[in-house]
Computed example of a mutant assay.
Amino acid sequence: MIRAYATKEANGKFEVIEYDPGALKADDVEIEVESCGLCHSDLSLVDDEWGVTQFPIVPGHEVIGRIVETGPAVTHLKTGDRVGVGWFSRSCLTCTPCMSGDHNMCPSVEQIAVGRPGGFGERVRVQASWANRLPDSLDPKKAGPLFCGGITVFNPLVQFGVRPTDKVGVIGIGGLGHLALQFLRAWGCEVTAFTSTGAKADEARRFGAHRVVDSRDKDALKAEAGRYDFILSTVAVPLEWGRYFAALAPRGRLHTVGAVSEPIEVQAFSLIGGQKSLSGSPLGSPATIRQMLDFCERHDIAPQIETMPMSRIDEAFQRLRDGKPRYRIVLENDF
């Protein structure tokens, strides 16, 4: 039996449950959880904002821990390895996307806290392909958020060929945005932070922004017209999208990784005239995650976190609801 924190209803309090994971699958590993980051997606699941939550739910998808058991088909990992796990926990490995290296776009991809237990527990099981060994030089207390927030903003740089010579804007300096600034600065880009919170301006520069633009200032946004090769939106709220399309240079791309619940409105001519694009992407494949970890190791990139014991999970979720974390809460296993 595995103990974990679950809530039995939307917006409910957490309680300790026990569940039987059954026999370990041949290609699975069982991980003793050391810590698990708290992401806004966990809040969306717990509040059933997306209509996919099955209660009771054990959330948590930024796991760091040690492998305590491996299935007989697992050959590349062993007991004692420290690994990280993000949003995805299983893919079929045989479909065209999987065979092309795009496991994250597998039609039957399993999401770790959707219809199965996530990482806010003493142990968690995943397919070994989705457990990435953590480089020794990365701080395991800080590494968890890389497996969701980090790979979410790193993956577009790889998929869309962002170049060191590009001028790139990042909308929203939070759990995702503060990592995007670090990646892009190390990537070699000219980096601009768009933020509605003036108090974050100095922090944005510390994370790597060359420039900071007040996203509430319409004149400031207007002055950015035609500047950017790539704009990455990390926010989950509607924006005046037209202003950001206007800020794109010819062949520029507005890319969203924020789960905006409302349609993104765009006039066809705002795309056609400058051959501009609108796109989105999920988290990355296991191979891209490994690239990200190597890049973080090389450039000393890590999230800014605050830690709490997992037993204070209700308090942690409330802190997230109130928008207080700077910039990621990591819950440490204290079962």
Rank of each mutant, 00 (worst) to 15 (best):
Q127Y: 04
K13M: 13
N132F: 00
L283R: 09
G84E: 01
L254V: 08
G274Y: 06
D294Y: 06
P140I: 11
D136K: 12
T75P: 05
P97E: 10
A23P: 15
G242I: 06
L179A: 01
L146H: 05
N333M: 11
A249D: 12
S100F: 08
A113T: 09
P107S: 07
S44F: 06
F194M: 07
V33Q: 00
D27I: 00
V162D: 03
K142Q: 15
A26P: 10
A23K: 15
F14Y: 11
L331D: 00
D334W: 04
D81E: 08
L278P: 05
G198A: 13
V16I: 15
K25P: 12
R66D: 13
Y228A: 05
T307I: 12
V74Q: 02
L254R: 01
A131K: 00
A10W: 09
G65I: 02
G118R: 01
R227W: 03
A201Q: 11
S44N: 13
T234I: 04
K8S: 15
R66H: 13
L38M: 13
T165I: 14
G258A: 05
P56K: 10
L232S: 07
G101A: 10
I264P: 05
L43N: 06
E69G: 14
S35G: 02
V162A: 04
K8Q: 12
D81S: 06
R206I: 10
D229M: 05
D217F: 05
H255C: 11
D28Y: 11
A316D: 02
A223Y: 04
I173T: 05
R211E: 14
F160A: 11
M308G: 07
H178W: 06
D81H: 07
L179Q: 06
D229A: 13
H61F: 02
G149R: 01
V153D: 01
T152I: 08
T197P: 04
G51S: 09
H299I: 09
Y228S: 02
G65C: 03
H210V: 07
V29C: 03
G323Q: 03
W87A: 12
R3T: 15
R163Q: 15
N104E: 15
V213N: 02
A180F: 02
S91L: 07
S233K: 03
F269G: 04
A180M: 04
R243K: 12
G121E: 06
I2S: 10
R185D: 14
F55P: 10
E110T: 14
C148G: 08
F335G: 14
T94E: 14
G65W: 00
S279C: 09
P156T: 10
I57D: 01
K218H: 10
F269A: 08
L283Y: 10
H299K: 14
T288H: 13
L157E: 03
H255M: 09
F120C: 07
G284I: 09
G119F: 00
N11Y: 14
